[in-house]
Amino acid sequence: MSRMKFLCDIERCIDCGGCVIACKEGNHIPVGVNRRQVLTINQGKPGEKSFSTACMHCSDAPCIAVCPVDALYQREDGIVLVSKKTCIGCGYCFMACPFGAPQFPTGEVFGARGAMDKCTFCAGGPEENHSAEEQKLYGQNRIAEGKVPLCAAMCATKALLAGDGNTVASIYRDRQFKRGSGVNAWGQDKAYQG
C-alpha cells in the first residue's frame, strides 16, 4: 500500500500563494483558518526561501497520540484525518503538532474553540464519500476521485508535490540530480567566484 506524502521543493516555491487560495476556494474554508500557508525566511535578502506547509500526515502522528477522545485517525494510505463530530476542541493536537497544522475557528479575543480543522489531503472525512455532510464538514474528496489535492494540482511551478510517497520521492530525486552541477550545485558560488 502506498503512503500519501506532501513535499515542497524549496528551489521551486515562489511564494505565490496559489496553493493557499486553491485550498480555501475549493474547500470553502472560513477566513482566518489556514489549512495551508506559505512561509518565507530571510524575506528581502539574499538567501530568501519560501515554502508551503500544511499537515504533513506524519507516519507516527503526535496529534493522534495525544487526542483524548480519539477523534484523530490515520487511513491505510497514511492520510491523517479528524472526525469533527467526535472532536471536543481541547487543542492538545495543536500543542503536539510540530507544524502548527491544527486550526480552530476564529472568534473573539481568546478565540472560539470549536472542532479542529486541518488539511485533509483533499480526502474528505469519516462521513460517506461525496455526501453533503462530508462536503460541509471537510470540503472536497478528490482522493476518492483519483485526483491529487487542490494545492498541488494548482501549483504553477510544481514546487508542491503530493501523492504516493515513492512517486513524489522519485520526481524530487530526478530534479535534484539535474541540479547537481553548474550554477545550481552546492558550493558553486564559492568554488568559482566571479
Binding site: E11, R12, I14, C16, G18, A156, T157, K158, R175, K178, R179, V183, N184
Partner: peptide
C-alpha cells in the same frame, strides 16, 4: 507566476 515553470526548468536542466 506561471512563467516561472519554464524559467526554473531552464535553470535546473
Amino acid at each position: 507566476p506561471v512563467s516561472l515553470q519554464h524559467i526554473l526548468h531552464a535553470k535546473e536542466v
